[in-house]
């Protein structure tokens, strides 16, 4: 059974995928993971997850053009320039 190991560097930091170990159960996986990722105190916490329990999402579609939800959906440069020119022409 393959266990994916995620480790945390410091309290409050995100857990990062660090590798995997093969072990028949959680107890053995923990012993392995402690040796591999904790014997120098380099991790404050570990997450061990059976590989088959991970529901991975890798397919994304954007049929509805969701650009308006993101910063790259707004191109203001040209219009800002125009607005500034108009303002300066009116005041001048």
């Amino acid at each position: 059974m393959i266990w994916e190991i995620f480790r945390q560097d410091r309290k409050g930091q995100p857990f990062e995928h660090a590798g995997s170990v093969e072990a028949p159960d959680a107890e053995f996986a923990e012993a392995w993971a402690r040796e591999q990722y904790g014997r120098r105190g380099e991790s404050v916490a570990l997450w061990l997850a059976p590989r088959e329990a991970i529901h991975a999402v890798t397919e994304w579609s954007d049929e509805f053009d969701l650009k308006y939800r993101r910063v790259d959906g707004y191109s203001i440069k040209a219009r800002l320039k125009e607005a500034r020119e108009r303002a300066s022409a009116e005041s001048g």
């Binding site: 393959i2 590798g19 995997s20 170990v21 093969e22 040796e35 591999q36």
Partner: peptide, 17 residues
């Protein structure tokens, strides 16, 4: 020695996948 055997274990895992 323990570190390096540990590296071998991680590396062979990657090869297994």
């Amino acid at each position: 020695v323990q570190d390096e055997v540990g590296h071998a274990q991680l590396i062979y895992r990657v090869v297994e996948d």
